[in-house]
């Protein structure tokens, strides 16, 4: 609270903060589940509701319209997604776009496939969309696409106009929706081959994006970050631009949902839990049968690689020495 800032009118304060949206959602939820919630008291219900909004757990299992309703909800959902599936990243598994969609739909049943596709396009540079992607690549691309969706849609329209050779000054940016976007994406794919390598001139694109930012109130990546990314090359394609934005650490920090890439997979609590579980599973049968020295060696191996899942672990025990990535992949 800064007493030197001019007083904001009450209605402006309320509309800026999205707080009315949460209040009306809270009432709607209360009405939908009257019996469940009222036995603890209405006040207690509101306390729980707003605590969960504050903690970011409120988006779990909610409908897509709610999840995307506010920047806070979007960031919360990205965070929930990361926390739920961090172990996938640790085990190093690569998944396809449809598999990521399934994971998302476990958290939000009506999560649209278009958004997952867009995120996959960023990772795969709009090429061979059914390739497998690593968890962290997908996660940061997904974050960018989901959090700044409206802005990126507009940038895509500008990009396409520039590709088609239209003057950037006449570009009209409608309040785009994903439905409007679909045919244009299809159109782009037709003449993709010759234009993919070229892209557009970064200076022109930077100008257009700057003008676009003036019209967007809040939900765009910071101008300086985008400028920095665009200044690195002379020509850029839409998806390589987005890829650079997705990897940009300061944009990630602004959104505030995910840690930096280096810390993305560190989760000591879960590691401990897994170690405990694995110890329970494997120690009980083996400790009876095998000699103490061999058993001890196996324990060391287990501790050394807590990130591999149990399936791999069994295989290691069968093989003679501690296996490496190569042997695993050659067997598959």
């Amino acid at each position: 609270m800064n007493r030197f800032s001019p007083a904001v009118p009450a209605d402006e304060y309320l509309s800026d903060s999205n707080v009315l949206l949460y209040l009306s959602d809270a009432v709607a939820q209360l009405l939908d589940h009257k019996e469940e919630y009222t036995q603890f008291g209405v006040i207690r219900y509101f306390a729980e509701y707003f605590s969960s909004v504050k903690n970011g757990n409120h988006v779990l299992f909610r409908e897509f319209n709610y999840i995307r309703a506010t920047p806070h909800n979007r960031a919360s959902f990205v965070r929930v997604f990361w926390r739920c599936y961090r172990q996938i990243g640790k085990s190093g598994d690569l998944l396809s776009m449809l598999e990521y969609r399934s994971l998302l739909q476990l958290l939000c049943p009506d999560f649209p496939v278009e958004l997952v596709q867009s995120a996959a396009r960023i990772v795969l540079m709009d090429d061979a969309i059914d390739c497998l992607m690593s968890f962290s690549d997908f996660l940061y691309a997904f974050q960018l696409q989901f959090y700044y969706q409206e802005f990126l849609d507009s940038v895509l329209l500008i990009y396409q106009d520039l590709l088609a050779g239209k003057s950037p000054n006449t570009v009209i940016v409608p309040t785009s929706t994903s439905i409007e976007q679909l045919p244009s994406v299809a159109a782009e794919e037709i003449d993709k081959e010759e234009q993919q390598q070229d892209g557009v001139e970064t200076s022109t694109l930077a100008q257009c994006i700057d003008a676009l930012c003036d019209r967007f109130k809040h939900s765009h990546p910071s101008r300086s970050c985008m400028k920095e990314v665009l200044e690195q090359t002379d020509r850029v394609s839409y998806y390589s631009f987005l890829m650079s934005l997705a990897k940009d650490e300061s944009i990630n920090q602004t959104i505030g949902a995910l840690p930096s890439k280096a810390e993305l997979l560190i989760d000591p609590e879960m590691d401990q839990e897994l170690d405990k579980l694995i110890a329970q599973i494997s120690v009980s049968p083996s400790s009876n049968s095998s000699g103490s020295a061999v058993g001890g060696l196996k324990e060391v191996q287990r501790k050394a690689s807590p990130r591999r899942n149990i399936h791999h672990r069994r295989r290691i025990e069968v093989e003679s020495d501690g296996s490496t990535e190569e042997t695993d992949s050659s067997e598959n």
Binding site: M1, S17, Y22, F46, A47, V53, H72
Partner: peptide, 22 residues
């Protein structure tokens, strides 16, 4: 109060109310 964090404010407010009433 014009708190900078209205959601946090509401959470505290209702928690406080709840602990007072019941």
């Amino acid at each position: 109060a014009r708190s900078d964090d209205p959601i946090g404010f509401l959470a505290d407010h209702f928690c406080n109310l709840a602990s007072v009433t019941d």
